[in-house]
């Protein structure tokens, strides 16, 4: 009888499978029992801090796409600063996290960097004080800055907010040649998990 090749091949495969099963079936001869742990998945929280400028109520994340964000703070009052007087600014930091447990952070305003925009020396007659507060509205209170230094920090619990206020003062002895000059003030903010 003529047997097609395909049929022969199928028979060969079948025989191999049967032989293979017969060879390994010994491993099934002993009992075993298994259970799954159903432990699920552990997921990391996000580490988000929001920054809100006082007067404009503009909010941005502290980092955007992994890069530090910059928030421009508005001063109060808006306008020129007179020797011996101060203007105020503040930023509200929000501990926006989805952490499952406690997640407290400490926001720190570092040493301000004051730079002249035209090399006038205006920066040398400006000073900055920083202080923690509960609300942005408190930033305009001169009494708040009594004894304050140029750096400050505030601890913020999970899903809560904290405020850092800044007082920028033009020295009363600022010379008249500095009229109309401007300077840039940069304050680094860092946030650490506690």
């Amino acid at each position: 009888m003529h047997t097609p090749r395909a049929l022969k091949a199928a028979g060969l495969v079948l025989a191999a499978v049967v032989l293979g099963l017969l060879t390994v079936q010994g491993t099934y001869a002993l009992w075993n029992s298994a259970v799954n742990s159903n432990a699920g998945t552990v997921q990391a929280a996000d580490f988000r801090v929001s920054l809100t400028d006082g007067p404009t109520n503009t909010t941005t994340d502290m980092t955007v796409n992994g890069l530090p964000a910059t928030v421009a703070l508005s001063t109060t009052p808006i306008g020129v600063v007179i020797p011996g007087q101060s203007v105020y600014a503040g930023v509200q930091l929000g501990n926006v996290t989805n952490a499952g447990g406690d997640f407290k952070i400490r926001a720190t305003a570092g040493t301000p960097g004051i730079t002249d925009s035209s090399g006038s020396g205006f920066a040398s007659v400006l000073s900055v004080k920083a202080v923690a507060a509960d609300t942005l509205a408190q930033c305009q209170s001169a009494a708040l800055y009594a004894g304050a230094k140029n750096m400050a920090s505030v601890d913020i619990a999970k899903n809560m907010t904290g405020v850092l206020c800044f007082q920028v003062t033009l020295d009363a002895s600022a010379p008249g040649r500095l009229q109309g000059k401007s300077a840039g003030i940069s304050i680094p903010l860092t946030v650490d998990q506690l």
Binding site: S33, A34, V35, N36, S37, T41, V42, Q43, A44, A45
Partner: peptide
């Protein structure tokens, strides 16, 4: 942040 560790495959066998 926002990473995951999958334990679903863990089991025990007697």
């Amino acid at each position: 942040a926002t990473k995951a560790y999958e334990f679903a495959g863990v089991g025990y066998k007697l």
